[in-house]
Design a protein around this nucleic acid. Structure first.
Length: 515
RNA sequence: GCCCCGGUAGUAUAGCCCGGUCAAGUAUGUGGGCCUUUCGAGCCCGUGACCCGGGUUCAAAUCCCGGCCGGGGCACCA
């Protein structure tokens, strides 16, 4: 593929188009004047590769349809209606927005569900008035236990068919704080005979003791909270969402939510479900990731922040997500796949440097002159220039360092080419030092004897440390790098030749991106 | 237990709706070669798949049935 040279410059949104064109059209796309899509994360954690999928797919559709001249709105909505079991993380609201910006995703409107409690109460009352819901409450004709039993027996409990005024009154009592957790719920009337028991008369409003579990944003102001299915139905309608693209785990929720739409006389939005994304060797379970006790932007984690810190480019994530597409099947991608995408992007950008891990000293005899190596910053782009490394000869000897791996492979009597410098013949190895003599200087001579070509570092090299994540462990590679590495700016990704791509984080510290 | 969805190479995906152009495309992986002196980069060549069994049809990866396997969800999480 020769598309990379041109990709060297700034990559704009246009470069995403390839995958976007391949996206299948959305159902009834022509029916809507304006299409409205949304991304609705729970701010109980930051975004990771799995949650990036709905964000990217929704946004990709926005770009796709805008490219076709359609008006498309993209809404960001934080779904934080459970202060108890999915407690929002206060920092997550901003961190998620940061993740989205990094992905190049812009939103037209932003909402936080915990700011909208009044709206949910209002709709709850309306749906009660319309007889689309009822309250099961302790001390009433339908206790929470009665309601639960009715789902098994199929026989409705009293309040289900009672006059709306009774249920409205019970709901007011809920709001007044007369009930404790578990003592009262508002449930949506669905179908007590529905084959899926979880669809039968599901809970729309429940009590959460916010003195015990204060909400990070609204504290203990509310004790009656909407469940996911209720608040989502309301918001999707009120925000005019036309197409809901979400993971397959939500398919039953579409069924449940349809009852709210029916009771309220609202038009159903189009729902599309895609499979889950898994990555081999890494968990994408938020619960499990949190349980690790590692900060969410750690380079070991598949969070967007972790991947970002590790040197993965947002384009690589886009590419992988668009490649996987919107199939309803689960997709298991390998990190090799993600790294391959990333490599395509960073390979032309990353300048090349020499570094050796676990340095071993090499003394080369028979060198009577000063030697200078001229190394291109990037072999494919000579216009990026060169830097020179000069080695002084003392008593006809010069000293360099090579990596232990190369030292171990060097047999006595063999010839090795030190990149751009000279060819040496190994005389002796004593475990700590390699003694060699100059064999020749030109590449041709090295090729004739099939000499390996390796990188090396002069004695005035810079001590470096590269942190390399391996599953959940962090491995520290220590070594030496050529002096020019000091000029690399922090945050820049370069390639340490024959080692891998690294990202500079401090003067002498690097993160291993991948090979 | 109950409900939903799906099964194309090692992995991921295209094709399936509207059956023939699919002896199945692409990416990654893998094998080999080339390469202006890095490489695990690039370039070139190769490798490798339609879950199984029936049926419909002149013709099935594509439609129907059964089986097997996998995934997801579930009753006051989102």
């Amino acid at each position: 593929m020769s598309k990379w040279p041109e990709a060297l410059g700034e990559r704009k949104v246009e470069s995403y188009r390839k995958g976007i064109e391949d996206l299948p059209p959305l159902p009834n796309d022509s029916k809507y004047e304006v299409m409205t899509l949304r991304f609705a994360p729970n701010p109980d954690f930051v975004l990771h590769l799995g949650s990036a999928r709905p964000a990217i797919i929704n946004y990709a559709y926005k770009l796709k349809y805008e490219g076709l001249g359609k008006k498309v709105k993209f809404i960001l909505r934080f779904e934080d209606t459970d202060p108890r079991t999915k407690r929002p993380l206060p920092e997550a609201y901003e961190a998620i927005k940061e993740d989205l910006r990094w992905l190049g995703i812009k939103w037209d409107e932003e909402y936080v569900q915990s700011d909208r409690m009044g709206i949910y109460y209002e709709i709850a009352k309306k749906i009660l008035e319309r007889g689309g819901a009822y309250v099961a409450a302790k001390g009433s004709d339908c206790t929470p236990d009665d309601w639960k039993r009715s789902k098994v027996t199929g026989k409705p409990c009293k309040n289900r068919d009672a006059d709306p005024s009774i249920n409205l009154e019970l709901f007011d009592r809920m709001l007044e704080g007369r009930y404790k957790e578990g003592e009262a719920v508002m449930v949506i009337k669905t179908n007590l005979q529905h084959p899926d028991p979880s669809v039968r008369d599901w809970v729309a409003m429940r009590i959460i003791d916010t003195t015990k579990y204060p909400h990070p944003r609204v504290g203990s102001r509310y004790i009656v909270w909407p469940t996911y299915n209720f608040s989502v139905s309301i918001d999707d309608h009120l925000m005019g969402i036309t197409h809901i693209l979400r993971a397959q785990e939500h398919s039953v929720n579409t069924t449940k939510q349809s009852f709210v739409y029916t009771h309220m006389g609202w038009e159903q939005p189009e729902a599309i479900h895609f499979g889950r994304l898994k990555i081999v060797g890494m968990t994408l379970s938020k619960t499990k990731l949190k349980a690790l006790g590692i900060k969410w932007d750690d380079i070991r984690l598949p969070t967007l922040a972790g991947l970002r810190n590790r040197g993965i480019q947002p384009e690589a994530i886009w590419n992988i997500i668009l490649q996987v597409g919107i199939k309803p099947t689960d997709a298991t991608i390998s990190s090799a796949n993600l790294f391959a995408e990333n490599r395509k992007i960073i390979e032309p950008r990353a300048n090349r440097y020499m570094a050796v891990i676990d340095p071993v000293k090499v003394i080369i005899e028979g060198v009577n002159e000063e030697l200078t190596a001229r190394l291109p910053m990037h072999p494919s782009f000579p216009d990026r220039g060169f830097r020179e490394i000069t080695l002084k000869s003392i008593d006809s000897k010069v000293t360099v360092f090579i990596s232990k791996l190369d030292y171990e492979k060097a047999g006595i009597g063999s010839v090795i080419r030190l990149m751009e410098l000279m060819n040496i013949e190994v005389i002796n190895k004593d475990g700590n030092t390699l003694i060699a003599r100059i064999h020749s200087k030109d590449l041709e001579s090295a090729k004739r004897v099939n000499a390996p070509i390796i990188q090396w570092v002069p004695p005035d090299g810079l001590s470096i440390r590269v942190v390399r994540p391996e599953n959940l462990r962090l491995i520290n590679d220590v070594g030496l790098a050529e002096p020019a590495v000091e000029q690399v700016t922090s945050g820049e990704i370069v390639q340490f030749m024959r080692y891998g791509f690294v990202k500079k984080i401090e003067r002498d510290r690097f993160v291993y991106v991948h090979d």
